[in-house]
Design a binder for these strands. Structure first.
Lengths: 193, 193
DNA sequence: AAAAACCGTTGACATATATCAACGGTTTTT
DNA sequence: AAAAACCGTTGATATATGTCAACGGTTTTT
């Protein structure tokens, strides 16, 4: 169960974890299983955990006045699910995170993670690498959203993230791209001609 | 000149810098003046410097096939200008960063910054705080772009960032929001009625 | 002082995307 | 096995936003 997490961490740091460090990580991250549709975080709650996805698929979304869901993130294996704003500032989250498939996670509280980072310097490094990648990915997505048409955005997404296309239904992809399912359907139809 | 930077750093860390640390920082960050319209980073170049803005205003933007500029960031005093993707991966940047007003910066190379971070742990902490805030701000912007109409996006921006409204012309704000200047003009007109 | 560039606004019109409703084919729940 | 929920598609229409062109008032450059 924890092997995926350890492998993930080792891939993101310079020199591998010692076995003591690995033991400490295994002892700290707790397994958590979610059934399909089960909430990991619900709007209004403070985000207490960061969760590493070992197996499964999840989504993060807000719900507007009209009850429409807006997908802000999609997660699969080897992704981290949490709401940083809520977790950092201890404010109620504006988002829901739930399981799209039955999912197995490894979770820690923020305090536990900070504690681990003090004891294992490599985790600080890993966090920095992750933040960096995350910042880059967000920048790209933002830039794409501002500059491109829906069609280009879909093409870009489909080429860079084919796993998501296979894993999630079209209406979620559409929402993630900021368009309706009907528009995405028409874009795809047109694209194949 | 460097006081603003030192004050900025001290505001973002737990215990203040020692005078040796301050001296090291002052010795490393070099002043750089840019005249209005002068490039700090030009598309196709690798981003070599991170720059802290002491005085002035800048913008970061891409230019599409049709020659249209898309503003991805606006900067004023106490902001950091750089293209992380290019600086981290050493790839040619897709963006331009230039001075909108005459600007005074303090710049360092990535290597110098990493070196400083090794010698001054507080800077690691500062970077983490900055990354965190940056991630939160990006998340909000992304969420807003996906979920809201242009009108709501403008309202949100205007209430959260009044300094920018005063400092930059409307057509730049419009581009930053991902709409045309004409649309923003009409939104504003309508909003005042 | 004149010329040029810049800026915000407005009108007419074009286009992209959303909305609403309906359908048939799946898959899931009962 | 039947019922319900889910999913993608299509058509008709509405709405938001973009495009193009022009204008007058600034500010900047010559």
């Amino acid at each position: 169960m924890h092997e995926n997490l350890l492998a993930y961490i080792n891939q993101h740091i310079a020199s591998p974890l010692t076995s003591e460090e690995e033991a400490l990580i295994v002892a700290t991250f707790r397994p958590k299983k979610l059934r399909k549709k089960q909430y990991f975080l619900q709007e209004g709650d403070v985000c207490k955990y960061a969760g590493f996805i070992v197996k499964g698929a999840m989504r993060q979304y807000s719900v507007d006045d009209k009850g429409v869901e807006h997908i802000v993130h999609l997660f699969i294996e080897n992704y981290w699910a949490n709401d940083r704003e809520s977790a950092t500032m201890l404010t109620p989250s504006k988002y829901n995170i739930d399981a799209w498939e039955d999912t197995e996670m490894l979770i820690v509280t923020r305090a536990e993670m900070l504690d681990l980072m003090e004891k294992i310097p490599a985790l600080v490094q890993m966090t920095r690498v992750m933040d960096e990648r995350n910042a880059i990915a967000n920048q790209r997505r933002l830039s794409s959203t501002i500059s491109n048409t829906a069609e280009k955005r879909y093409e870009e997404f489909a080429t860079h993230h084919p796993q998501f296309i296979q894993r999630f239904p079209q209406h979620l992809i559409a929402s993630f791209l900021g368009i309706t399912k009907e528009t995405l359907s028409r874009i795809r139809k047109q694209g194949t001609k």
